[in-house]
Design a protein around this nucleic acid. Structure first.
Lengths: 178, 178
DNA sequence: CAAGACATGTAACTGGTTACATGATTCG
DNA sequence: CGAATCATGTAACCAGTTACATGTCTTG
């Protein structure tokens, strides 16, 4: 289960509350691993029991305690152990491609592809912005920063490929509508 | 749940047994939707109950009957209805990218990236072969064939992007190992 | 003073994986 | 004659989604 490991990576960068982790999963990390707060709380509880993370409590009268999670030495060890395993390829599950393959309604498909193109274009410009902001000089990077740069680079490559694909789809489907 | 729809798309091309569908999900369809035979049998049973597919039985003494599934008119209608819904983006879940982002062991990462590169390269050449074989003249395509061509094209775009990404990762991680 | 961010969770359900089980037919 | 392919499933489990629940603090 790799959500555990995504959480460990995030906590190894900086300690956080469950809520804070959920925010991170909405933003940067979310580009390669999506998770909801409910799921994160569930997994954090399990991880604490297993000794991979520890909590610092802040009492808040009336309400549930605020918990700040940190990675433990055991957690760091587990992260290294896991990082040495070969990773499995992503599981392919694309509604969009299934729909395209069936092509039951080319006009609806064209609209859907246009929507996708817009979304991907927006994502791509967010990636480019992030690259300009956080990694202005990629030749100088090393260690952890290099990792996050290379991860971002993957997002950029994928988004560019997706964009080019959408454009080809749109070109073909538009010419179909005589 | 889009496995249902992936099955409907596949059956709309040609009727098949559960086993046969599982084979298709190992091959072509598997590039954009993965599923095991166990899951397929489960979903087919539910779909038959819902009237989306029908079966033709072949008695086989001693053993369970062989069932050949076909899409029903209700199934075709459902496929069209679904195809008009906007599709959600793929859920990002990449072990590889999480590992890269953490970059706990650059040497192990380089090996993993090389493995990935090899796998992707193999996949890409399978795609190219399939394109040459099934869609030698893309300008002439229309209807269903156009859909399957465009779906394949997506696989090609993604594989190329992945390959280029892996090469950049390898270049950076190799130069790190002074 | 209202909206939105901060903060933590439970419960029911759905979808998917892994392990197990069985047996005939085909091909080298 | 043994391995691979054809063929169908059950059961236990794990991961992830959706709906519900609660309450404070901050900012415009």
């Amino acid at each position: 289960m790799a959500l555990e490991h995504a959480i460990l990576v995030s906590l190894s960068e900086k300690s956080a509350t469950g809520y804070g982790l959920a925010r991170r999963f909405d933003a940067s990390i979310g580009h390669f691993w999506r998770a909801t707060h409910q799921q994160i709380y569930k997994v954090l509880a399990r991880m604490e029991e297993a000794g991979l993370v520890s909590t610092k409590l802040a009492k808040r009268d009336g309400r549930l305690d605020k918990k700040t999670y940190s990675i433990t030495p055991a957690g760091e060890q587990e992260l290294v152990r896991w990082s040495r395993e070969p990773s499995n390829r992503e599981v392919a599950r694309s509604d969009f491609t299934v729909k395209l393959r069936g092509l039951a309604d080319p006009v609806a498909m064209r609209i859907d592809a246009q929507r996708r193109r817009d979304e991907v274009a927006e994502e791509l410009s967010a990636f480019e912005e992030s690259r300009a902001k956080h990694h202005p000089d990629p030749a100088e990077l090393s260690g952890k920063k290099l990792g996050s740069y290379l991860a971002l680079l993957g997002g950029i490559h994928y988004a560019q490929a997706d964009l080019a694909w959408c454009d080809e789809i749109l070109a073909r489907l538009s010419s179909e509508e005589h």
